[in-house]
């Protein structure tokens, strides 16, 4: 069974990565982005039931004070605002140290059941009126993904 887990910061908690990406986008000369939310994604291929995955999330993948998570569905964000989604993943064969550590962590938590693989990625929600997919493409290429080790895909959210 493959689970997709998204971890994001709760409302009103500083998203440092998102903010720093937002600044870099402005440096890039693209002024159409007003805010960036970053979301950590885990793709877990494992013989675990939902309750076990939920336990893994609560005990290992999130900081319960500042972060929230959802399994097999995207975490909350201000979807009503115009936005574009960019997801960045490691290419096949590139060491995914965080992914490897999740497997070890699950074992240490004594969660029974085989975990075949864990891949980690990052989702960026780029909010902005009139942001074009072409601009998102530039942002992905120049800031978010390094083509040598990472792939990205762009998902049009709600366009203005």
């Amino acid at each position: 069974m493959i689970y997709r887990i998204e971890v994001g910061y709760k409302k009103n908690i500083l998203d440092a990565l998102g903010e720093s990406v937002n600044k870099d986008i402005h440096d890039l000369g693209i002024k159409k982005v007003s805010k960036v939310k970053s979301v950590q994604i885990y793709k877990i291929d494992a013989d675990l039931n939902f309750a076990q995955v939920d336990e893994l999330c609560r005990k290992l993948l999130i900081d319960p004070i500042t972060q929230e998570y959802l399994v097999n569905q995207p975490v909350e964000h201000e979807a009503a605002l115009p936005h574009i989604l960019v997801e960045v993943w490691f290419k096949k064969g590139v060491t995914d140290a965080v992914g490897d550590t999740v497997i070890t962590g699950a074992r240490d938590l004594n969660i029974q059941g085989a975990i075949n693989s864990v891949h980690t990625g990052t989702k960026y929600v780029l909010y902005g009126q009139k942001l074009t997919t072409q601009q998102a493409e530039t942002i992905a290429r120049k800031l978010l993904a390094n083509a040598i080790v990472q792939d990205y895909n762009i998902n049009q959210g709600k366009l203005a």
Partner: peptide, 12 residues
């Protein structure tokens, strides 16, 4: 060549 690039694991 890109095989020269890699990512480390400090915990190990």
């Amino acid at each position: 060549e890109v095989s020269a690039v890699q990512i480390g694991n400090p915990i190990v």
